[in-house]
Design a protein around this nucleic acid. Structure first.
Lengths: 219, 219
DNA sequence: TAGATTGTTAATCGATTAACAATC
DNA sequence: TAGATTGTTAATCGATTAACAATC
């Protein structure tokens, strides 16, 4: 008897994480091209600007639909709008930052976020010396008010910029308040239920990996 | 005639990027275990703490040597020292930050870097209002002095925290001054010669990918 | 010795690259 | 039409997972 190989029914057709992480780069480059007044761009030119192969770009884009014109290229405005929609940037998410130390302040001032369509609507800290301050025109509020404010202002994304020791606690509060996504800068593993999406931004990885590569290069 | 398949001579045995990016996580977790007074740790327990499978961890570590004891586990002190050496953290690299805006200030204050063994030895900016200030006990100096200071203080790693428009220019200066590695926070593609190692830290990717995942989750 | 856990090889899975037909 | 460039399928490459022999 020959054992049948199990076949997954209705292939989930999941887009790769790598592809999704390249979309913001495409978006940014398209915006720059738009600013330069370029109407049509080829995968070749996009690739040149990004240091990514044209094949890779075509494959990434094709996994979401047919955005280009054969023999022509991609219409910049149209493609940018499509990529933006795929990323959900047109939804103008409301975001909050928890932990207004140096990093929190830096994040609160990022022009980049505004240009991607995110609205910074709340800042939280627990330090009485910080509460009440304004950072980039947004008032810092007591973390005790977090749950209420998250709900009132329909905040969907929370940024954790507190010390590692408090990160899990803050994450729990954010989850309890009903957030959809957490962007964690604390260098610690935090656990959230599968209904909440978690992205970790671990700054020590970048510097350590640089150290590794320099160490292992004979120059 | 049968075509012989070309065989790469002396397989380069290159360690995967994914593996290298996990090493800093192992290092950190081992340090925490050390602080807790734990002498021996298994791949199982390490994996539990990090959300990584034990098999993955054993494979990663085994690619650098045999650090464990079968039937026992890994000696925390010894493994931490070995991982630190692999990452080159024992070399105590001298680093400089270019661009002392909000992000530069935040990076200058990161305790994390100190704990990984990096020495912050210079800060640069071009704004006369910023030059002369002290951030975390380090004086901000004129970017015009960059080349001289990088050489005098034996700086090996440079952190770019300037606006996108100036990033390439700063990178060129850093390369010319003889740096070995660049950690780039500017949201733009910069080009460096292959002798200089470049790591990009693109903060808009994290937030955009969060937006993507929230958008494509039916809740 | 028996139980535990590593290190390593093989199998699977996923992502990139190459090739090219379709078509503007 | 001829040239250019996409979208898609196949081939390759790389990384993870599974399995298990080695051995503490």
């Amino acid at each position: 008897m020959k054992t049948e190989k199990t076949v997954k029914t209705a292939a989930p057709l999941k887009t790769s994480k790598a592809t999704i992480d390249r979309l913001p780069l495409y978006f940014r480059t398209l915006r720059l091209a738009q600013d330069e007044g370029i109407d049509i761009i080829s995968s070749e030119e996009l690739g040149r600007r990004l240091g990514i192969t044209p094949e890779q770009i075509r494959k990434d884009l094709a996994s979401f639909g047919q955005f280009g014109k054969k023999g022509v290229g991609y219409y910049v405005n149209e493609l940018k709008r499509n990529v933006g929609e795929i990323l959900g940037l047109n939804r103008h998410w409301n975001i909050a930052i928890v932990g207004i130390g140096h990093l929190g302040v830096a994040l609160a001032n990022f022009q980049n976020f505004v240009s991607l369509g995110f609205n910074l609507v709340a800042l939280f800290d627990q330090d009485p010396n910080v509460i009440g301050n304004r950072v980039n025109h947004v008032k810092v509020e007591d973390i005790k008010e977090l749950s209420r404010i998250v709900q009132e202002r329909h905040i969907q994304i929370g940024i954790i910029a507190v010390p590692a020791a408090f990160a899990q606690e803050v994450a729990d509060q954010l989850v309890a308040a009903g957030l959809k996504g957490i962007w964690n800068f604390a260098p610690v593993k935090i656990s959230v239920p599968p209904t909440t999406k978690l992205v970790n931004e671990d700054l020590s990885i970048g510097l350590s990996s640089l150290s590794y590569h320099i160490t292992h290069t004979d120059s």
